[in-house]
Design a protein around this nucleic acid. Sequence first.
DNA 1: GCACCTCGAGTTCA
DNA 2: CTCGAGGTGC
Length: 687
Amino acid sequence: MYKNKSIDKKYAEERIIQLKKIIGKYRHERLTLNREVISPEAEDTLKKELFDLEREFPEFVTPDSPTQRVGGEPLKQFEKIRHDERMLSFNDAFSKEDVNDWLERLSNFLGRKINGPFYAELKIDGLAIELVYEKGILVHGSTRGDGEVGEDVTQNLKTIEAIPLALTNATVNFPEKLTVRGEVFLNKKEFDAINREQIKKGLKPYANPRNVAAGSIRQLDPKVTASRKLDSFQYDIVTKIGQKKHSEEHEILHKLGFRTNTNNKICATINDIFEFHEYWSKHREKLPYEIDGIVIIADDNSVYDSAGVIGKAPRAAIAYKFSPKEATTVVEDIKVQVGRTGALTPVAVMRPVNVGGVTITHASLHNADEIKRLGLKIGDTVIVRRAGDVIPQVTKVLKELRTGKEKEFKMPMRCPIDDSKVVQDGVISRCSSKTCGARHRESLYHFVSRSAFDIRGLGPKIIDRFLDESLISDAADIFELKEGDIAALEQFGEKSAEKIVKEIESKKKAALSRFIFSLGILHVGEETSQLLAEQAIEKLEIRNSKLEIADILKYFKNLSIAELQNIRDIGPKVAESIQGWFREARNAKLLEKLDDVGVIITTPRPRSGQASEKLKGKTFVITGSLESMPRDKAKEKIRQLGGDVSESVSKKTSYVVLGSEPGSKYEKAKELGVQTISEKEFLELLK
DNA sequence: GCACCTCGAGTTCA
DNA sequence: CTCGAGGTGC
C-alpha cells in the first residue's frame, strides 16, 4: 500500500500507535462484551495497514502489537494445555501483488527462487484446534489460545462426529503420540437453523457462523456443544512421521480416519494458485460452509521448515483472502461536483482500496446532511462498502483514529464552476445560475444519453472536447456538426468523424416522449415525459397529424398550472417547473433552433390496440438481469400487453420477476409477501 | 395531515 | 441501487 510512496516517519509512528489502540479496543469489545463494533473484514484492512507500516518501519514494532500475537487468551473456566509446538496463524494477502511480494520475500530469505509447488487449501472461517492421540486414542483437544497455551476443550470436541475418537490402523502406522491440527466450524445450514431458533425465542441472532462455533466449543456443558452439530476438517500433522510434503499429510490424515477437505489442490506454479483463488472466489457461495480465502503453503516440507517463522506466522505460508465486501480507507479530500440540475454533490476522494474485487477511489457523499450525519472530516479513516455490490458508499467514520489534523468540510457558498450564489433546496445545495457551465455541460450529456436522443459514440468525453473546441455550444449544434470539423481535431480521423456524423444523422427523428425527456426539465423524468407526451398527442392530433416543434412550444407555453396538474402524477412543483421551462426565452430559442436544424418529432400511438387482458391491472417489477432479453425490452413487452412496470416493490406489485443475481428487491418481495416468478414463468405469462 | 407509493437524480469502475 | 421528495388517497 505504501510501497511507492515514501511516507512521513512521524505520521507512521502516530498511525501505528493509533491502529494498535483501536484494534485492541475492538478485540476487547468482541471478546468481553460479545459486541462486534466493525466487521472482521473491515478490521482486516486495519490490521493489514498496521502490518505494512510495521514492515516499513520495524523500529516501531512493539511486543504488544496485535500483529505479534495469535488468537485469544484462554478463558479461566477451562484447564490450560501447553502446545508442544507453537500454534501459528497466517499473514494475510489481499491481492496478487501481495502474493507476489510474499513470494519474493520468501525467495530472498531462502536465497533461491521459489515458484512452486504449492498446496492450496480453502481457508474455512472457523476455529483452530489441536488434537492429541496417544496409542491411537484421542486424549486431548484444545483451542489455539495465545498460540503457546490453549484451553482444554476435549469433552466438547468429542461431541463432534467428524473428529475420530480412535484412529484407524488399516494402512498407516502411527506413533505412540500423534498431534494433528485442524478447524472446527459450523455449516451455513446449521447456522441458519440456530438463528431462526434465536429469533423465535426473541433473542438477537448471531453475527456469523464463526462466532457460534467458537462459542459452542467454549461451552462448559458438552451437551450444549453436542446440540450444535459442529463439523471439522484436519489439515496438519505436527508430529514428524516421515512426511515429506504437506499434501502427503492430507493423504495420511484421510487414511487415519480424519475428515479432510477434498477441494484442496496441489498447484505447480503461482498462476495455478491465482486460478484456484479466482475459482473459489466465484463459487464459494455453493459450499456448505463459509470460507474467507485460501491458504497457500510451500508443499515441500523442507522448504517450509527452513523458511521458519516470522512474527506469529510461518514464512512459507500465507492466507490469500477474497476481496472483502467492506474495508477501511482514508478520506484524503472532499471534492464538489455540479450536476445537470445545478446540484452540488460532495464526493470523497479516498486512498485506493480494494472492495469486492475493484479498486475504489471515489464515493458520493450525496449532500451536506449526509456528511453531518456521518460526522465526516477530511483526513478521517472510514469504512467503505459497495451498496448493492456496486456503488461505493461511506458507511462509518472511525473517529478513534483521529489525530486532530482532520479538516471540517464546508459546503461552498458559491458555485465552484461559475461562482454564482448557492441556494439551499431541501437537503440539496444548488447553483443558482441557470446558465452555469457545469449545468450546460451536463444537460448536453443528458440530451444524447440512452433514454433521450440515444446518440451512441457521443459520450461526455467527446462532448467536452467539442465544447472546448467551440464546435458546439448547444444541443442543436450537434446536428450541424461537419465531418471536416471533427476530423480536423487531434485524435479524430476521417473514419471516426464519418461514423459520428452518420450516427447523429440517423437519430434526427425522435418520439415526442423522448424529446421531452431530453430537454432535461427539472423533475421531469422518463415517466413524466411519457405522460406529457400522451396528453399532448391527444390534444393536438385532433387538428394536426403532423407535429411541428413550434406547435409543441405553443401548446406547453399556454398550458396553465391547473391544466398541468390535471395530468396524473403531476402536482404543483412539477407543474411549476414545466411551465417555467417553456416560458424561458432561452429555451424557446433552443426549440426553434432544433426545428431549424431538422429535428423531427414522431408521434407513435401509445399503447396500441393489441392490449391483452392477461396482464391488465398487473404490476411487474424486474430485478436482476434476464437472459432472454434486455430489461428495457421486457418492460416494453409488459406494457404492450396491458401491464404496468414499476421500479420499486410495494404491496401493489403483482409479480416480481427474478433475473439472475437479484438485488434487494427480492428481499423486499419476500418481506411483503409479493409473489415472485422466475424468468421462465414470466415468459409463459407473455405468451 | 399522514402513510404509502413512485419517480427523479446521482453515482463507480472495468 | 438508494435516498429524498413529490404526489395521491384516505
